[in-house]
Amino acid sequence: MKEIVYFESKRFYKGKIYIKYILVLLALLLLSYAIIKISDSTYTFKNIELIIYENFTSLFALISSIFISTAISKEHEDKTMNWYISKKIKIRDVVVGKFIFYFINLSIISITIFLISFFINGRVYGNGLTVLPTLSIITILVSVYFFIISLNIFISATQKNSGICIILSFVVWIILNISSMLKVVGLYIAPFIISSIQYESFYKLLNYGEIPNNFLLIVLLPIVYGLLLLIAAVYMAKKLLNDNTI
């Protein structure tokens, strides 16, 4: 698994993918300010952070698919499975190793940018939150990213072509957004959409600074979904990559 993380990081940093990723996130951050101006809202700490959170979860789900879509399907495209077999690396380790790499790297960069904007906006516009609500917000973000990245890894493990993975991610994104409009059930379907309990609790934390009673459920639900998706991803990757061996 260590080897997978090492190879993936080599590809990520050698291809300067991380620079493109940071640029996209910075553009997303600036877009959040532009949205407030376009919609004629006032620049307050709460308004800005709500839009940034919305963009850094909902749109992040779309953007991250570009960077993760090649994770597993690339192994099929490049026909690298025989190399893994020669190195005695299991498919499970390939999937989990890639997940760990993307989860740590993409989340850390994204959460760092989110937090920098969080503290700067708190300084400029006032109303900065205390430590405990801020930590709760970070925890929610981490759990949402856990779900998003495992969903993308799962999609990547289902298709032979990385281009199709992005198309599929978009379709899944729309379907999840549509299903979120269902009453009650919509709260628990996808953690990155505006009607989710995660968004609701972020709103409460931002406005009242209070940690919701069901905080454990809010954090654990995306992680449970994510784990289930990862198990499914391992199964799908086995089917996909085993066809690839000589």
């Binding site: 291809g15 993918i17 493109k20 990723y21 640029l23 996209v24 553009a27 953007i63 570009i66 960077f67 090649t70 990385s162 281009g163 992005i166």
Partner: peptide, 11 residues
């Protein structure tokens, strides 16, 4: 490059 061109479109 695929990742670069899709990233650029998003940008």
């Amino acid at each position: 490059d695929f990742v670069s061109s899709s990233g650029l479109f998003i940008l």
